[in-house]
Design a protein around this nucleic acid. Structure first.
Lengths: 220, 220
DNA sequence: GCAACAAAAAATATCGATATTTTATATCAT
DNA sequence: ATGATATAAAATATCGATATTTTTTGTTGC
């Protein structure tokens, strides 16, 4: 977002990332350069730069002289992602509650407001479509980022972001869009309130539960 | 290491990464493509792929339409790296001591042996040269990796590795090669023994101290 | 039939040149 | 002089073509 310098390489990176996370390319599938070169209508250079970046953050695998492919999914990998995510996010949340200032509080309140509006739109008014779901994902992501942003640890947030992308890939793949999201909605409300009250121990508990609940729904 | 498929892109990636960490390119310096294209004697494509990857892991900064540059260093950034490193490494060590099997123990013993030999070579026999220091860094890194490898969390190890690269850049930049490394040697010995004894609380304490000690020496 | 090897096809990786954008330099009006 | 604008230079980003490697196909001998 808000990237003024829209280089082709950056654009295709964003597009590919999105597509990989959304499961457009099946697991283990080889990425044929010629093919997606045509599809995205670009040449090799920016394409390969984008692919290289994605491989660096493990959204692709780059095997020596034989190109790029989409990583396989496995139970153990997902469990590792989930457990690590819980640890790092809890860590960041703890720091947020300790260090978060007024600006942080405002961003949490603001992000929560957006999230709850979008949740209402989908789950109460039933306006379920691809665009609204994408938007729900975005504001949900933004809410979590806001919560943790008080931690003042760019590195921790960087890693959390990376894990969330991986987690999302599993989520999208399992295609479990739960219409009965009431539990999730409750989690978010509690999370917001406990955070603003600086009730660390309870907030951490809820965050962990929230992540585990999502993970459980994905494993099936 | 042990990458059989030595593509030009991979080679130049390794080389650049090493050079950035070792402080060959000053902080904030712009990476002139034409210049290092000549220096490494390659063409744009593999060079830009390598640069893109390095930017993805934050060893470079890629600003829109105006190329790549080496990140600035700051006290706060280094503190974030250090604190995050402590948290993640301690987390991984705790898991290692909990889950580590016989194979893990062997790798720790083996890695420690290598490390202590190299430490002796340098600090007792005084064979101090660029090559031996590089080798010390390598076996030191390997020892820490071995310690944490029992954790069974590839994602945690991935992040730790990334942080260590950043940490190393600061270390190399400050150019503090301490000849009185006796303290560091003691840390490693203690770390090994406490780990094999599965003395979690003490091992974590020593690891944290070890990292803080290194960080202190860098800040000056 | 089947393994081993050779030839052909396909795909990846790299190159050198071009187009685009940014940065530096020069010109002009105020 | 100074700031704005146009021009030139430099640097980045992208393209299309070539070289290299891998994969597939086909052939031969057993």
């Amino acid at each position: 977002m808000s990237n003024q310098n829209q280089t082709t390489s950056e654009l295709i990176y964003q597009g590919l990332k999105q597509d990989i996370i959304q499961g457009v390319y099946p697991c283990g599938e080889k990425i044929k350069l010629e093919e997606i070169k045509e599809r995205y209508n670009v040449s090799y250079s920016p394409l390969r730069e984008a692919l290289s970046r994605l491989a660096e953050s493990r959204l692709l695998i780059n095997s020596g002289q034989r190109g790029f492919r989409v990583p396989e999914m496995s139970q153990t990998d997902f469990e590792d992602i989930t457990e690590t995510r819980i640890k790092l996010e809890c860590m960041a949340l703890e720091m947020s509650l300790l260090k978060g200032d007024m600006e942080w509080e405002s961003s949490v309140v603001g992000a929560y407001h957006m999230l709850s509006l979008q949740e209402k739109l989908i789950h109460e008014k039933g306006e379920v479509n691809q665009e609204n779901i994408q938007r729900l994902d975005d504001v949900h992501e933004a809410f979590h980022q806001a919560l943790l942003s008080g931690s003042q640890s760019p590195w921790l947030l960087f890693f959390v972001k990376s894990l969330n992308a991986q987690f999302d890939r599993y989520r999208r793949y399992s295609a479990t869009f739960q219409f009965s999201h009431s539990k999730s909605v409750q989690y978010h409300l509690k999370l917001k309130e406990l955070s603003l009250e600086r009730n660390t121990s309870e907030a951490l508990k809820v965050l962990e539960e929230h992540i585990r609940y999502s993970a459980q729904a994905i494993i099936k």
